[in-house]
Design a protein around this nucleic acid. Sequence first.
DNA 1: CGTTTTTGAGCAATCGTTTTCTCGTCGAGA
DNA 2: TCTCGACGAGAAAACGATTGCTCAAAAACG
Lengths: 342, 342
Amino acid sequence: MPVTPAAPDSPPAGRARLADVAALAGVSVGTASKALNGAGRMRPETRQRVLDAVAELGFSPNQHAQSLHSGRSWTVGLMTTDGIGRFSTPVLLGAEDALGAGKISVLLCDTRGDAIREQHHLRNLMDRRVDGIIVTGRRTDPRPPLPGVESIPVVYALSPSTNPTDTSVITDDRGGARLAIEHLVATGRTRIAHVTGPEHHAAARERARYAVEQLQGAALQPSTGRIHHGEWSEAWGRRATDAVLRTAPDTDAFFCGNDQIARGVTDALRERGVAVPGDMAVVGYDNWDTMALASRPPLTTIDMNLPEIGRIAALELLRAIDTEPRPGAHTVPCRLVVRESS
Amino acid sequence: MPVTPAAPDSPPAGRARLADVAALAGVSVGTASKALNGAGRMRPETRQRVLDAVAELGFSPNQHAQSLHSGRSWTVGLMTTDGIGRFSTPVLLGAEDALGAGKISVLLCDTRGDAIREQHHLRNLMDRRVDGIIVTGRRTDPRPPLPGVESIPVVYALSPSTNPTDTSVITDDRGGARLAIEHLVATGRTRIAHVTGPEHHAAARERARYAVEQLQGAALQPSTGRIHHGEWSEAWGRRATDAVLRTAPDTDAFFCGNDQIARGVTDALRERGVAVPGDMAVVGYDNWDTMALASRPPLTTIDMNLPEIGRIAALELLRAIDTEPRPGAHTVPCRLVVRESS
DNA sequence: CGTTTTTGAGCAATCGTTTTCTCGTCGAGA
DNA sequence: TCTCGACGAGAAAACGATTGCTCAAAAACG
């Protein structure tokens, strides 16, 4: 239903179509298409005429028509299971960055952890014929795979799939714990306490396990003889500080499961008059700048390179789309950020 | 290029097409379409046969074909100018929620504040024939409108467009400042200091202006006789506390431009032995839970209802798409959250 | 029983590109 | 001068769904 059927050579109402370009260049639609896509032989002069027409009309192809024809939508779904939290956001940005650089756009879906919503979004993505899906969650705990997506590639970022033959990109908790302990040991600490989040969080469990493993490698053990599990909060950090110092007053370092706990620890230490890093070193986890930089003193901490996880997930997805998926868990190394608390 | 051209009645390789449904139901493609879209008269029994076939094949229509035909993509662009920061994220989620409830999906674009990238994404969105665009930024400062989008509706959220005939959805800084001051005055405070962010931020300027206005309405003025502009940081909050108490030791309340400053203030007060809320009330701004709840005591603060801003922006966009845009700035009221610091 | 309505379903054009195939035409070689 | 290649451009068939129009059969009516 063209708005101006009267004047067939008038500038088309909406946007220029390839047919308009072809008309202006005095060639057929097919030829114009070839001129744009480079395929086929053609006289350079003809191609130039088409390109001129494209420039003049500001033409760019209708993606729906292209997608209908090719079956590819040049779109991927980005499914986040818990709003866009502190962890999923950087991952998401890394992925968006890697994908957006090319022709690929990102469809954002937030399931809010609700299975119904997940189903609804998934359906939607399939209807839109996305080329692939990246699934990311708030926590590093494994999650069940998306149901009914056999036909397109899926990559899990941060929260791996429970199915080991899926492709997942995850953080290296072992490496992170090792970096922290290595750093503390290297700077002369020997009585190290570990304060972290709830035991039912994979992140807390794993980091604790590998921290102990690493301590044992240096012939050491946690200063209090155990792991202090609690919440991921400053308040817990403060309470745990008291508990640790009561049990093991000779503690000379805290390795904390996240930066909030670490900040609570530094606050509690300051209030007790314990000098950081003089009498006590503190190392956090996450490199969450609002916490790590606002802490007094600023925190030495472990950075999980979340944007890198997103980026790699995107690259793995592209590989899965274009060639072959590489199943299994791909770990992204952490980075030690040294500041004034150690 | 069907993968299984040999057996025309075999389950189609990829997904079911309407043609497959029609074949299974023993009707023509056109009839099948009508059965789904309700239009036209048809025998109930025929419609049922089609619906059964749809269910059996798990058919759902190819969106690209639909969009090509209708010219609508059922997609909107969500353009954020600064990564996905603390402010744009809730806005974005609100918008996604309002849009995703219907058939509309969200294309995420992050410009990182870069004009080139913005141009690139904009082009992309136009090529995808999005039905509209929501633009959101990190700050409440006005921003120049998107260039070259006359053909589709655009709504600006949080950062209004400098063009007053554009549709913008913004926070009510005046109302926020009023809520804070009203609350302090109502609880008996009369010597109120205002510590906030840099003067070149609209948010800081406006809130300060309206806070003063509101104080004057109660025949009061800032306890130090002036506004304390600085950074949006805890460190500034701590420093400003000293300055305020030196200048006006009889100050009995702090109204802070954000929660980080407010937290800095409570920390400084505690270290000086000033009781909150006994000797001093503190009110923040943003209701950023990591700050407001971790503060000692938890902060009374102003909540801008950011998700609501996103939601309303989405609704305004839908209205602009379906009927008529409503130009101008739409303000969303703030909410006072009372906690233990006042 | 014949004629006019109603009704239900199919045909075909359409959206905008891509791509294969066909068909002129021009140039070169014999 | 005739023929055979090569080369360049156009015609047409996809991709999958929607929709106005046509047309047959069945129902209603006199």
